[in-house]
Computed example of a mutant assay.
Amino acid sequence: MNDCLLIIFTRNPELGKVKTRLAKTIGDTPALEIYTFLLKHTFNITTQLAVTKQVHYSVKIRENDLWDSKVYIKKQQFGDDLGLRMMHAFQQGFKEGFKKIIIIGSDMYDLSQSDIENAFSELKKHNFVLGPAEDGGYYLLGMKQLKTSIFRHKNWGSDSVLKDTLVNLKDESVKLLPIRNDIDIYDDIKDVEVFQDFINNSEIKKQA
């Protein structure tokens, strides 16, 4: 059995329920369009990876969607907050026999297939890998052994998440990957060329 597992956390693409902080500036419809675009990007950079791939849905598993069930194993997230949901996903993965597990979200444009391949490669040499995000969180987490403290007592969505996680890992073998920009608010996309068409059709342009 392939001992490498990639977990992709995703939200169902529904109007008014995705990229809500971004939507406050550009409107619900462009925010949904951007999220759908990011889902397709995540699909494109993961579908050819030579590892086992799981998609974990936030609300409800969908059968006939972007994620081909021949390529992606579909699962349901569970837990009261993001940390517990990630912890349960890792626990399940290790219980299923995987030795190297990486988790990413489904909304990182600043991420490529080679970035994920490199993360798995670094996981051969280190027990943990972390991809720092510009906003103080992280866009990727990988481990070879479960450490539950990573997932507890964090202010998820704040700029302290990476710092607090590194405190939990201070005595561990950790590889930090290059810093990447994740997309939560308007400032994350306003100067990125690929998002300009979305912005031009958004509330912010209508109000200008």
Rank of each mutant, 00 (worst) to 15 (best):
G27L: 05
T29G: 00
T29D: 11
T29I: 14
A31H: 10
A31P: 00
L32D: 02
L32E: 04
E33P: 00
E33S: 13
I34F: 07
Y35V: 04
Y35R: 08
T36E: 15
T36L: 09
T36D: 11
F37M: 14
F37G: 05
L38K: 06
L39H: 15
L39E: 07
L39M: 13
L39N: 15
K40H: 13
K40D: 08
H41D: 06
T42R: 10
T42S: 11
T42M: 12
F43H: 15
F43S: 07
N44K: 08
N44L: 08
I45A: 07
I45H: 02
T46C: 12
T46Y: 02
T46M: 10
T47Y: 09
T47Q: 15
T47S: 11
T47E: 14
Q48F: 03
Q48P: 00
L49Y: 00
L49E: 04
A50R: 10
A50Q: 13
A50E: 14
A50W: 00
A50H: 10
A50Y: 01
A50G: 06
V51G: 05
T52R: 10
K53H: 08
K53W: 11
Q54Y: 11
Q54E: 15
Q54V: 07
V55I: 15
V55R: 01
H56M: 11
H56N: 13
Y57D: 04
Y57W: 14
Y57M: 03
S58W: 06
S58F: 12
S58R: 09
